[in-house]
Design a protein around this nucleic acid. Structure first.
Length: 308
RNA sequence: GCGCAGAUGGCGGAGUGGUCAAUCGCAUCUGACUGUAAAUCAGACGCCUUCGGGCUACGUAGGUUCAAAUCCUACUCUGCGCA
């Protein structure tokens, strides 16, 4: 099995830096090259630098990074596409005899790579989904139940209160597709590392990071992208967090103090959601101190020297 | 000092005699997650409970009433106006 190291955890715990540190450590100590793959749903986009806290070239310290700056913000993307793309990249990395580190906080993206669970194998019918938007959740639910009986498909996994999910389920069944089975085992030889920080510490880090990004010009970045028509307010809304609230601020829907407060809580809530997501994987080695990664790497690489 | 307004759960803010442990928003807690995932969605949220219910609560102290967060009186505090 080919090796794959993951570095996961909530935002603002220092994953990106740790990935670089780990990469350099492995290269120096074992002479094996390492390449990093970002698992961040927004850092994939060009121009979104300060807002997503994207790692700089300098901070990469020469370690190759993948899945950063590959799309224009206006282009749409999906977990499915992500999973496919990363699969290719992994293959190349393994061919080169290098070890990949998948690093990021987007749980679903990690799942798509590690377990190859990126959803049903039925492409979305965007037009049809738009039509469905016009119905309310109860009507949609009724439709879904009818369809499931017609097509004899189990829909017990669908969250019937979540409009988006119900629409997608209807979409899949209407196309005669079926829901993918969930894989529970990984095709890779895994080392999963989670970076953990206690609530108070994490809150503090989030606040400090936010203040710093404001100083760095996070708002101006978006203003400029709006001027250049690289971003729209609509797109900023779907990008979430920083972009969503900056958009509201620039449109004067909220004041600066409100912006700061709302954004802080939104990031904090996001971090909690990430924590819940990663909780379900029992094979993650949770560490609090970055230095604790070294023995884990030593053991992993010594026990299973990567071959290609 | 006088006048007016107000004091509600961690915060904001509804409620103005019974259906109020008290709408709602925020925060908090727990969780879901099958092609938008930094997204989307759910549950809990006074205390106790054998889950039937019980108890204590709407500034404080009294009062009216079968019944009060809601009416009356006094007091305390806060805001605005006049002195």
């Amino acid at each position: 099995m080919n090796p794959l190291i993951t570095i996961v955890g909530p935002t603002a715990t220092g994953k990106s830096d740790l990935a670089v540190t780990a990469a350099l450590y492995i290269q120096e100590k074992f002479g094996i090259p390492v390449e990093i793959i970002s698992a961040d749903s927004r850092q994939i986009f060009k121009h979104l630098d300060i807002g997503t806290g994207k790692i700089t070239t300098e901070e990469m310290k020469g370690v190759p990074h993948h899945m950063l700056d590959t799309l224009e913000p206006k282009e749409s993307f999906s977990v499915f596409a992500y999973g496919k793309k990363v699969e290719e990249i992994l293959e190349e990395i393994h061919k080169r005899g290098a070890i990949p580190i998948l690093c990021g906080g987007t749980g679903f993206y990690i799942e798509a790579v590690v377990y190859k669970n990126a959803g049903a194998d039925t492409p979305p019918n965007v037009e049809f989904q738009k039509e469905l938007e016009n119905f309310n959740i109860d009507e949609l639910h009724t439709k879904l139940v009818q369809l499931s009986e017609e097509k004899q498909k189990d829909i017990s996994h669908v969250d019937i209160q979540n409009k988006r999910r119900v629409i997608r389920a209807i979409d899949i069944l209407t196309q005669d597709g079926s829901f993918a089975k969930k894989n529970t085992t990984s095709p890779y030889n895994l080392l999963q590392i989670g970076l953990h920080a206690d609530a108070e510490i994490l809150k503090n880090r989030i606040q400090k990071r936010l203040d710093k990004r404001l100083d760095d010009g996070i708002i101006q970045e978006s203003e400029k992208l709006l001027e250049q028509n690289i971003l729209t307010h609509e797109r900023m809304h779907t990008l979430g967090l920083e972009y969503r609230f900056i958009s509201q601020l620039l449109q004067k829907k909220i004041t600066l103090p409100e912006f700061k407060e709302k954004l802080f809580f939104a990031i904090w809530h996001y971090a909690k959601r990430q924590r819940v997501w990663f909780k379900k994987y029992s094979d993650i080695h949770w560490i609090q101190n970055p230095d604790d990664i070294f023995p884990l790497l030593d053991e992993y690489i010594t026990a299973t020297p990567p071959t290609s």
